[in-house]
């Protein structure tokens, strides 16, 4: 769905910039772009729960991390893994983890749901941190990225930053389009009803538990896709990728961009990663750059206090200002 509040020309220009960017950008920025898009997929998965079903999960990193670990654990040590096998496997394991945990957490609501999703995510963190299963706190290296192989033909070499960028871009577009369809399908409409009024949905005959669980599993699988890609890009996994901070960060992205709208999640991921880059740049903050979370934390506190109706509402106002500019200024912008 094209956001109504964004002018179509601006959107097209943005899309074009995203597609052409790797051709002109330095490798560092191309990699940063891929990272942003991976986080955007992650944020989309959480937005399905928070923004579209009304389930505030504070444990989404669990499924992201589990899938990353699956790739690390099943990759051969010195040769490329087969993407067609490892990607579905990683997503399936993430989905199964979400199914088991979801079966327990979806019984709860409100504050309980927040605490319980966080707690189970921490359980998985403990599994990878305390046991030798995933290399303990040191994690595991993935020396060779998986290979995209279609009957001997390799359309994309994922070791190449530019081609990896395009691979992630395609997947982001697919996930976006897929979620867009899901939300307009009967399943998605039922989720929208559950978000607004769960009691009413039950009294007109919807098995709300199953719908919520379905959303939880789908979100888990998509978070798994993002986690798989993150493991590909960074070349190693350690327990920190499923730590609770990661869940907090992705929730931050969803809210920053305005929850309940798919483009909001993408925008949120983009803004957050960029802010992080700026705050942690030594050129800007000198010795305090390594304490960038101080600035980020203060910003979060400020945003929540200053915009009582949420950042989404604030962004709406800004976007409306941009899209309803007087025609004269729009024309000068176009040239």
């Amino acid at each position: 769905m094209i956001p109504i509040s964004l002018p179509r020309t601006a959107l097209l220009a943005a899309l074009l910039a995203i597609v052409l960017f790797p051709l002109i950008g330095a490798t560092f920025y191309v990699q940063l772009g891929a990272k942003i898009m991976i986080m955007a997929i992650f944020a989309l998965s959480l937005d399905l729960l928070v923004g579209h079903t009304g389930l505030v999960s504070l444990g989404q990193a669990a499924y992201f991390g589990v899938a990353a670990y699956v790739l690390a654990l099943i990759s051969p040590q010195y040769e490329a893994a087969n993407l067609w096998l490892t990607l579905p496997a990683a997503m399936a394991v993430a989905a199964v983890a979400a199914l088991i945990i979801g079966f327990l957490v979806v019984r709860t609501a409100g504050v309980y749901f927040i605490m319980v999703t966080l707690a189970f995510a921490q359980m998985l963190y403990s599994v990878f941190h305390d046991t030798k299963l995933g290399g303990g706190s040191d994690g595991i290296y993935i020396y060779v990225r998986p290979e995209l192989n279609i009957a001997g033909f390799k359309p994309l070499d994922l070791e190449n930053p530019m081609q990896f960028y395009y691979f992630v871009l395609i997947l982001l577009a697919v996930v976006y389009a897929f979620l867009n369809r899901v939300l307009h399908a009967p399943f998605g409409r039922a989720l929208a009803g559950i978000r607004l009024n769960e009691q009413r949905m039950r009294s007109i005959g919807f098995p709300v538990f199953s719908y919520k669980l379905g959303a939880f599993v789908l979100a888990g699988a998509l978070a798994g896709l993002a986690g798989y890609l993150a493991a590909c890009q960074f070349g190693f996994v350690n327990p920190d990728i499923l730590a609770w901070q990661q869940s907090g960060v992705v929730l931050m992205m969803v809210i920053l961009g305005g929850m309940g709208r798919l483009h909001g999640a993408v925008l949120g991921a983009f803004s957050y990663v960029l802010l992080q880059e700026v705050f942690s740049a030594p050129a800007l903050l000198g010795a305090y750059a390594k304490h960038w979370q101080l600035v980020m934390g203060s910003l979060i506190v400020m945003i929540v206090l200053v915009f009582p109706h949420g950042i989404g509402g604030f962004l709406d106002i800004v976007l409306r200002r941009i899209s309803y500019r007087p025609p004269s200024s729009a024309r000068t912008d176009g040239t």
Binding site: L251, I255, M259, L294, G297, S298, V301
Partner: peptide, 13 residues
């Protein structure tokens, strides 16, 4: 949601 977000910010601080 906002309580979670704000107190998450406080933890970072």
């Amino acid at each position: 949601l906002y309580q979670v977000l704000l107190t998450f910010g406080l933890i970072l601080i």
